[in-house]
């Protein structure tokens, strides 16, 4: 019999449904086969769960006391002697600890999952932050601060010429309504505005994003102004309103 055929014994073995001679042969095989042992462990867990597949039944309240009384009666002889109960107590404590530990472990594993998710989120945020810091600290970076006439909202756009990226930071800019978005425009004197990209802010009115610099904009090397308008979600070829935010580019260095 090959290993694959032996594996078919795992499920009936876990159910206790093998004939005695089959069980004996399979147990001999198990001694040397980790794959089958793993399969048996797995099916034994499945079989164990079948205990939950019966109709719920309420035991009579008096049963609890009978169980406690019987436990006292069956307590090992050695443990009944004075001073000999420590082994018994240790065994009892181990069992109870294990009972508590399985519940604790279950709760702990749920908690770990939550923390792993948060860690992954923090990691991805840190990666974004790191890359933004790298982008902002390059040798050839221009910056434009966009402001409205009032105090808020505002935005700042960095242009890293080395890697051809715009880094956009927006503050207190209420998210554009559904179907709408914000669009940034590169405005060079004497030319039509060129789209730098489309984005939206979050519920806190903030946005931090990196946009690739279009070839046509890159070719200009310098732009006089930067404007922000609200447009349909996909962006417009040309601005459809007067910029809500406007600023002049300058060098960071």
């Amino acid at each position: 019999m090959n290993d694959h055929e032996w594996r078919d014994y795992a499920a009936p073995y876990a159910l206790g449904a093998l004939a005695p001679d089959e069980r004996g042969a399979f147990e001999s095989h198990l001694a040397g086969c980790e794959a089958c042992r793993a399969e048996v462990r797995s099916f034994t867990d499945v079989a164990g769960l079948l205990a939950h597949g019966v109709p719920a039944a309420e035991p009579p309240p008096a049963l609890r006391q009978r169980v406690l009384a019987e436990a006292q009666r069956v307590r090992p002889i050695a443990a009944r002697r004075r001073g000999a109960s420590s082994a018994w107590l240790a065994a009892a404590a181990a069992l109870l600890l294990a009972a508590g530990a399985s519940v604790y472990a279950w709760r702990l594993s749920s908690r770990v999952t939550v923390l792993q998710t948060r860690l992954a989120q923090a990691d991805s945020q840190a990666t974004v932050s790191d890359s933004i810091i790298r982008l902002l600290t390059g040798p050839q970076v221009h910056v434009v601060s966009l402001a409205s006439t009032g105090r808020e909202p505002s935005a700042r756009v960095f242009w890293n010429h080395t890697v051809r990226k715009f880094i956009v930071l927006a503050y207190d800019l209420p998210a554009a309504p559904p179907g709408r978005a914000y669009q940034l425009w590169a405005i060079a004197n004497g030319k039509a505005p060129m789209s730098m990209g489309v984005f939206n802010t979050d519920a806190q009115g903030r946005a931090t994003l990196v946009l690739p610099v279009d070839q046509a904009i890159s070719a200009l090397e310098f732009i006089d102004n930067c404007g922000l308008t609200e447009e349909p979600a996909g962006g417009s070829p040309q601005p459809t309103e007067t910029p809500r935010l406007l600023g002049a580019w300058r060098h960071t260095d």
Binding site: P55, A57, L68, L89
Partner: peptide
């Protein structure tokens, strides 16, 4: 039975008694 053991077994029963009884009855 020492009080601690009594309580330990009581907790064990409270946790699993119902499932075990339902299984046995089935």
């Amino acid at each position: 039975m020492a009080e601690g053991e009594d309580r330990a077994l009581g907790e064990l029963y409270d946790r699993y008694g119902k499932t075990v009884y339902a299984l046995a009855l089935a």
